[in-house]
């Protein structure tokens, strides 16, 4: 009998159809989301995904609570205080999108000492006791050049739109793009501007640098900046280069319009804001006593010419293409990480 129950439990853990049965032992667990910033559409979608998955998980009795908290000022000190409050409130796990990879380490270590499971994602922390669900931003940059090489075998001139100067993510994607250009030396980066991941800033920066640039064949971006670049290039009356997009609805909308008008083709890739739900399930898996490697990698959400209409239809106007991850997705990511170890 006892053995049967164990077998049943093990089977349920890997059975896709029965997510509510497996984690019965986490039914009392309370999970908190510590979020450092909410001021753009990506973060808004991230919070919505969390709310959706969290509410469902609570209703199904998988966890007792999945509360989201966002700091107002995007400051590490403020977030550290927020995490300390969560420790006092007795959460079993804290899922954190961190304002800084290092500045929260003290608060994170306190949480670990109090026996709390800490899972960081997107904005990860370096404190060894925490789990990290990281994005391979470098690969994200490299793949853009790889795609352009498949479209333009003879290479050409690239315009690079970077993010916010001095931020880790910007350096990583930039390094990936440089690596891509080394792999495909037929490409040359002839101009580089900072678009701060915002359409209007990118539009302004590109409009300012275009007059001094030769013909552009491709634009590599970091997400949230492709539509602004397209508008600036269009306003200057130049031929439209291949602009790699970042899954924003306005970017995909523009892409679909161009495709219908003149057969425009490109690629779009980014991280789905629903990565917050992946982190939620990973935290739940750890609480359920499963062995989970400390370093996990988030899959990219890629939109191609073939999936454009589908992605566009599923994305609310003005938002960003999204998927919510399920318990099974989380288990697959964990298995991948175990296999890589």
């Amino acid at each position: 009998m006892k053995r049967n129950i164990k077998l049943f439990g093990a089977a349920a853990l890997v059975t896709a159809a029965l997510p509510a049965v497996a984690p019965a032992q986490t039914g009392d667990a309370r999970i908190a989301l510590s979020n450092n910033y909410a001021g753009n559409s990506w973060r808004q979608a991230m919070l919505e995904s969390w709310e959706k998955a969290g509410t469902q998980a609570v209703e199904e009795g998988v966890v007792a609570a999945a509360d989201a908290f966002t700091t107002s000022e995007n400051q590490a000190t403020e977030q550290a205080a927020q995490i300390q409050n969560m420790i006092l409130q007795g959460y079993d796990a804290i899922v954190v999108n961190a304002a800084s990879p290092t500045a929260l380490n003290g608060a994170i270590a306190e949480a670990c000492d109090a026996g709390i499971t800490v899972v960081s994602f997107d904005g990860i922390v370096t404190e060894p006791c925490a789990w990290r669900i990281a994005v391979d931003f470098k690969e994200m940059g490299r793949q853009q050049v790889e795609y352009l090489a498949s479209r333009l075998p003879d290479g050409g001139n690239l315009l690079e739109i970077r993010g916010l100067a001095g931020v880790f993510v910007d350096d990583e994607i930039h390094a990936g793009i440089q690596q891509g250009v080394e792999e495909y030396p037929q490409f040359e980066i002839v101009g580089s501007v900072h678009g701060d991941w915002a359409q209007d800033v990118a539009q302004k920066a590109v409009a300012g640098v275009l007059p001094s640039l030769p013909e552009i064949d491709g634009v590599v971006t970091q997400g949230g900046d492709g539509y602004g670049a397209a508008q600036a290039i269009d306003a200057a009356g130049r031929d439209m280069p291949i602009i790699v997009m970042g899954n924003r609805q306005d970017e995909m909308q523009w892409w679909a319009e161009q495709r219908d008008a003149n057969g425009y083709e490109t690629l779009s890739l980014s991280i789905a804001p629903g990565v917050s739900t992946l982190a939620l399930w990973v935290a739940q898996q750890i609480l359920a006593g499963n062995e989970v490697p400390k370093d996990l990698t988030v899959p990219f959400l890629v939109v191609t010419q073939d999936t454009l209409d589908e992605a566009l239809a599923a994305t609310p106007e003005g938002s960003v293409a999204n998927v919510e991850y399920s318990l099974e997705d989380a288990q697959a990511v964990i298995e991948d990480a175990k296999a890589a170890e």
């Binding site: 559409s41 701060d196 915002a198 359409q199 209007d200 800033v201 508008q231 003005g318």
Partner: peptide, 13 residues
């Protein structure tokens, strides 16, 4: 209107 829609971070700079 110029940049094709309002964004939450549009005023930042």
């Amino acid at each position: 209107s110029f940049s094709g829609g309002a964004a939450l971070n549009m005023g930042q700079e």
